[in-house]
Design a protein around this nucleic acid. Structure first.
Lengths: 364, 364
DNA sequence: TCGGGCTAGTAAACCAGTTTACTAATGTCG
DNA sequence: CGACATTAGTAAACTGGTTTACTAGCCCGA
C-alpha cells in the first residue's frame, strides 16, 4: 500500500502529469486512433488537415509518446543489448569501449533505440542473455569477444533473437558480422618490422580462444612465412599489461631472444616495452615493438608506440546499423571487414646502418 | 503490411510462442489475477495450495514475465540511465568504466533492473536526458562528471526523475551523492611526495570545471599549505595523455621546474613521465611522479607508477544501490565518500641520501 | 439460524499506445 | 442515377501484466 507508484489513481490532478495520446486527441478533437496515425511518420488514411491539427496539439502539450506502451503494443523493446563477459579481476581498461559505444549510440539514437549494457562474470553470461531476451528487454544483441568455439550462436538461435558478431568469425558464422581485419592488421605490423630490418620477430598474443586473437596470430605467421623466416617465438598472454610483461620477460630469457615483438594490443606492448627497458634493453635499437589498437596513450609513452589503428567509432556505427537491419528483417547475412592501418612511431624505427656498431653493447 | 511484426495475429500457432500469464493461469486452472498474485513475491490474499499450483504451471511452461507489460502497468521502466558526455575527439580510455559498470550491474541485476547507457556529445546531452526521462525509458540517472556549475540538477528537477551524483559535489548538491574522497586522495599523494623529500611539488590538473578536478586541486594545495610550502606551480590539463604531456613540458620549461608532479590521473602521469624522461630526466631521481586511479597499467610502466587507488567496483555498487533507494522513495539525502589509499611504486621513491651527490649531474 | 468478518478467488478496469473492423461521406463511372 | 471504390474517421480490440471492486464460501458468536 505504501509502496504504490505515485502516478496511479489520479485523473484530474494538479501536479504535472505527462500528456498522453488521449490528451492530444482530445485537444485536437479527434479520436485516439486518428491521433496515433496522425503522429506516426507513415500515417496512412488520415487527412492532411487533421495531421496538422493533431501535430499542433501534440506540440502544444509537449507530448512525447510513452515508449513502454509503444513497446508493449508493437512487441518491440526499441533497445539493443550488449553483454560483456569480463573476468572481475581482469577488468582492464578497454580502449575499445568509449569510442565504439559512441559509434553505436550515434547509429541507434536517431532510430530512437537505446543500448542496454551488462558487464557480467562468466557464470552469469548465459543467464543474462536469457533474461534480457525472454523478458523482452532487447530486440537484438551485439556479440563482442567472439570465441573460436562459440556457444552463444546456439543460445541466440534458441532465444530467437537477432545478433551481430563483432569480429571476423569466418564463413561458418551463422549471424552477420562486422569486424576489423585482424589478420591483415597483424600482417601489416609484422611486414613493417621485417622492412625495418628485424630478423627475429616474436609475437605476444591476447587471451587464447578468441577469434581476434587467433586471426592476429594467423596474420603474424603469414607475414613471416611470406618472408621466408623460420623464427617464430610466441608468448601466450591475455591482453593485460601484467600478462604482456610476463610474456615479454619469458621471450627475452629464451636462448634466442627476439629483436622485435608484435603485441596483440597496446596495453601489453607498453608493459612489454617497460619490462624490456628495465633490463637495460633500448627500444627501438635492441628491440622494436608494435602494438594493436592505437590507444591515445600509445603516442605518449617513451618511446612512442607504433600500433595498428582502426576507426572504432565507425565500427560501432556500422555494427549497430547492421543489427537494426537484422531486427527489421532486412538481414544482410554477410560479413563486413573494416580495414586497419599502421601508425608508425619511434618504438619500431629502423636502426640506422651506421649506428649499428656504435653503442655496441648488448645483444648484438 | 509487409513489415508487420511476425508475432501478431496468431492465437493457436505451431511456432514457439512465449508463455504469458494467461497460459499459466489456464494451465493452473485459475484466473489471470490470481496467477499474477501467486507469482508476485508478496502475494497477498492467495491460498498456499494455489500458489504452489500456479508456480508449478509457470515452471512447466518456462514462464518469464514480460517486462514491457509490467513496465506499462507499474509505470516503471525497471532501468536506470547513464548519460556520459564525451568529446568525440577526446574519447580517451576511461579506467573508471569497466569496473564501475561491473559494480553497477552487480547491484541492479538482482533487482531485475538494467542499465541504459548513452555516450553523447555536448549538444546532445540535455536532449538525451529529456528523451530517456519523458519516454519513460528509465527510472533514474547516474550523474557522472559533475561540474562545478552543474546545469543538470535543474534539468532533473524539471524532469522529476531521481538521480545520484557520482562524486562529492559539496553540501549544496540537491541530490544524493556517492563519490570518492578526491581531496583526501590528493592530500595523501602530496604528503607522500613531501615525505620523500621533495621540495617543489607541482600539480597537473584534469579538465577544469569538474568537481573532482577541483577537489583534487584543493587537496594538493591543503597539503602544501600544511607543510608550509609556497611553491605551487600548476599545469591545467584535461585528463588525456596528450594534455598531460604538454602540461609537463611547460612545467619543466619554467624558470623554477618542479622536482615532483602530482597528476590528476594515471594517463596523464604516464605520458608526463615519458615526456620528462625523453628530456633526459630520471624518474624518480630527478622527478617524482604520482598519479590518480591506479589503473592496471600503472604497475607495468617504467618506472612503475605510484597512484591513488579506489575500489571503483564498490563505488559503482553503492551508487547504484543509492539510486534504487531513491527510486523507491527511500531517499537517503546524504553524501557518501569512499576512502582511497595510496599505492607507492618506484616513480615516487625517495632519493637515497648517499646517492644525492653520486650521479651528481642534472638539476640539483 | 442469522449477520458479521475473514479468506480466496473471479471478472473487469487500467496502463498508453497501435491496429483492426467498421461506417459515413465523397467521388467516379457506367 | 444507382453501384461501387476510395477516403477519413470512429469505436473497440489488443499487447501482458497489475490492481481494484466485488462475490462466494466459511467460521464464528449471539
Amino acid at each position: 500500500m505504501e509502496s504504490m507508484p505515485r502516478q496511479r489513481r489520479q485523473k484530474e490532478q494538479t501536479a504535472t502529469r505527462r500528456a498522453t495520446i488521449n490528451d492530444v486527441a482530445q485537444l485536437a478533437g479527434v479520436s485516439k486512433g486518428a491521433a496515433s496515425r496522425a503522429l506516426s511518420p507513415d500515417g496512412g488514411r488520415i487527412g492532411r488537415e487533421t495531421i496538422a491539427r493533431v501535430r499542433a496539439a501534440a506540440e502544444e502539450l509537449g507530448y512525447v509518446p510513452n515508449i513502454r506502451a509503444r513497446s508493449l503494443s508493437a512487441a518491440r523493446a526499441y533497445a539493443i543489448g550488449w553483454v560483456m563477459r569480463r573476468d572481475p579481476d581482469v577488468l582492464t581498461e578497454d580502449p575499445f569501449f568509449p569510442s565504439f559505444l559512441a559509434g553505436v549510440e550515434a547509429a541507434i539514437s536517431v532510430r530512437n533505440y537505446t543500448l542496454v549494457l551488462s558487464i557480467v562474470t562468466d557464470e552469469l553470461e548465459e543467464p543474462t542473455y536469457r533474461r534480457l531476451a525472454s523478458e523482452g528487454r532487447v530486440d537484438g544483441f551485439l556479440l563482442s569477444d567472439v570465441r573460436t568455439r562459440e556457444s552463444r550462436f546456439a543460445l541466440l538461435a534458441d532465444l530467437q533473437v537477432p545478433a551481430v558478431a563483432l569480429g571476423a568469425p569466418g564463413p561458418s558464422c551463422p549471424i552477420p558480422a562486422v569486424g576489423i581485419d585482424d589478420r591483415k592488421g597483424a600482417e601489416l605490423a609484422t611486414e613493417h618490422l621485417l622492412a625495418s630490418g628485424r630478423q627475429r620477430i616474436a609475437h605476444v598474443t591476447g587471451a587464447p580462444g578468441y577469434i581476434h586473437t587467433h586471426n592476429r596470430q594467423l596474420g603474424w605467421r603469414a607475414a613471416l612465412r611470406k618472408a621466408g623466416k623460420s623464427y617464430c617465438a610466441e608468448g601466450i598472454a591475455d591482453f593485460t599489461p601484467e600478462g604482456g610483461a610476463k610474456a615479454t620477460r619469458a621471450l627475452l630469457d629464451s636462448p634466442e631472444p627476439p629483436d622485435a615483438i608484435f603485441y596483440d594490443n597496446d596495453l601489453m606492448a607498453i608493459a612489454g616495452m617497460a619490462a624490456a627497458m628495465s633490463r637495460g634493453l633500448r627500444v627501438p635499437r635492441d628491440l622494436a615493438v608494435v602494438g594493436f589498437d592505437n590507444i591515445p596513450m600509445a603516442a605518449h609513452v617513451a618511446p612512442p608506440l607504433s600500433s595498428v589503428a582502426t576507426d572504432t567509432r565507425d565500427w560501432g556505427k556500422l555494427a549497430a546499423l547492421t543489427l537494426l537491419d537484422a531486427i527489421d528483417g532486412r538481414g544482410t547475412q554477410g560479413q563486413v571487414m573494416l580495414q586497419s592501418g599502421l601508425v608508425v612511431r619511434r618504438s619500431s624505427h629502423a636502426v640506422p646502418k651506421h649506428a649499428n656498431g656504435q653503442g655496441g653493447v648488448s645483444n648484438q
